[in-house]
Amino acid sequence: MKPSVPAAPALDALPAVRPDRVPLMLLPVLVLAALPLTGSLSTWVTLTFAGLAMGMIIFIIASGLTLVFGLMDVLNFGHGVFITLGAFLATAVLGRMTGWTESESLTRNLAAVLPAMLAAVVVAGLVGLAFERLIIRPVYGQPLKQIMITMGGMIVGVELIKVVWGPQAIPLPLPAAFRGSFLFGEAAVEKYRLIAVVVGLAVFGAMSWVLGRTKVGLLIRAGVQDREMVESLGYRIGRLFVGVFVAGSALAGLGGVMWGLYQQSVTPEMGGQINVLLFIVIIIGGMGSVGGCFIGALLVGLISNYAGFLAPKVALFSNILLMVAVLLWRPQGLYSVVKR
């Protein structure tokens, strides 16, 4: 866009638009730095894909959580319950379709997995709707109560899941066509990890499209920055929040199915175990930033896998170290969007 008339430079001077790509560069830097450390190309490829797959699943789960905080400052420590719920629903659906999951036909496998995912998304979304009404809404603007009551909500949810499915682990085997690996020369990449990466990219793409190209997405981005102004412009942010909460719960349900398949087993505690990781991810990414959440999730997935191989003793707290390092560099996380 060129100015039609040359005007006073002081009024028109504007720095060039330069999106902040430095956080994005952390990913290739980390991946390349790991190559000499792991010592072998095939190990490196395997670990990298494991890390990316784990990161993508964490992203699917955490993306809603970061927007929920961004929009309403709501800290939902109960998010993990939707993961567990999604995973158990998958055992219920897939357990009844073993004829199809054990078939070598990819179509039949998909015809079993897609309904399982759909069930997880729909039920987790509906439970999310109830969770928002009953548990979140009474404690808007009261962070301390939020933390306690959402944790309590998760404990109750997990107990209810135990009532339905029992307290023990339930196996969730991968459908036949998803098992095994692709070989790239020496390096083996598990098929399911590739699938997880593809699904994660698809979710990220869809979310970027909604946020970047639709009016609802615009309202969400605006609401994360200044919700009072969004209301002053005539939009009911409460409704927007409910929509985001339900979508976030549904995605956590989907992530639960994917995580259960990744582990090939499902336990009532799985949601609670991932919960901590979710908060690490959204703090690293910058609370309220979907792009930051994406990068944060991949960093956490990669570091977990590299550290698990290179220094198993450090692996336990490698993600905390990562978070501390990021916060020392950028106290608001990789991308800071919430300005209040």
């Binding site: 009016k215 615009l218 605006a222 969004v230 939009y235 969007v337």
Partner: peptide, 20 residues
């Protein structure tokens, strides 16, 4: 109350309630 992360166009679009 400017949305700093949004473009000028997006800021204006938010105020035009009927516009997509």
């Amino acid at each position: 109350g400017i949305f700093a992360e949004l473009t000028v166009a997006e800021n204006m679009l938010l105020a035009a309630r009927g516009a997509k």
